[in-house]
């Protein structure tokens, strides 16, 4: 479960009220929806790319457009909180963008920001950052289903049952996808290390 899920008491409209307002075409709910899930969407994008990229705001906006469409078209069945749903769609948008940049050979260019030279162990920090970039490259190279399952489970902290519901597969299928994704990630990262 993504933290921040559900509506605390006296914190504006409930998830159900937000969903109902969107389904009825009430644009006045826009700010409430943003305030409810913005932190999760922002954080997910940050985790996918490891920083706020130049088009971070565009990606956040795209994620919100997808969230609204899914709510307006009744794709959100209320099986999880709105924040979990938003996290899933933001992951989808973020990983798509990561994949597309990988294809364009623009993104994962190891152009990591230089570490602070005042740091205690600069070399180690560079190594750690490069390693995380390898993980991102591997995620971008996987099939969307595997990458999203892995990211939602191991990074966003969703439970397998939630992922199974959100991705419309059985728990066994989600688990199998997760195991295969982890194995593939390991192989890809090790393979890249040997190159």
């Amino acid at each position: 479960m993504v933290e921040g899920g559900g509506a605390p008491i006296d914190a504006g409209p409930s998830d159900e009220e937000i969903v109902a307002a969107i389904a009825s075409g009430d644009t006045r709910i826009s700010a409430a929806l943003y305030d409810r899930v913005a932190v999760v969407v922002d954080r997910t994008m940050y985790r996918v790319f490891g920083r706020r990229e130049h088009d971070h705001d565009d990606l956040v906006q795209t994620a919100f457009e997808q969230i609204v469409r899914s709510l307006a078209r009744s794709q959100f069945a209320g099986a999880c909180s709105l924040t979990t749903w938003a996290s899933t769609l933001a992951t989808h948008v973020g990983l798509n963008a990561l994949r597309s940049r990988q294809r364009e050979r623009k993104v994962v260019s190891r152009d990591v920001e230089p570490p602070d030279p005042r740091g205690r162990d600069v070399e180690r920090e560079i190594e750690a950052r490069a390693e995380l970039e390898l993980v991102r490259e591997a995620l971008a190279a996987m099939t969307p289903e595997k990458a999203e399952t892995l990211f939602l489970h191991d990074v966003e902290g969703l439970e397998l049952a939630e992922i199974a519901t959100l991705t419309n597969v059985s728990v066994a299928a989600a688990q199998s996808r997760l195991v295969r994704a982890r194995r593939e990630l390991e192989e890809r990262v090790k393979g890249a290390d040997h190159e």
Binding site: G25, L33, V68
Partner: peptide
């Protein structure tokens, strides 16, 4: 703040589009 204003405008636009399409 800028991101918030942009996103809220986009949310409103998408809600209106979806309502019209419906």
């Amino acid at each position: 703040e800028n991101r918030r204003a942009r996103a809220i405008a986009a949310i409103g636009r998408t809600i209106a589009d979806e309502a019209r399409a419906k």
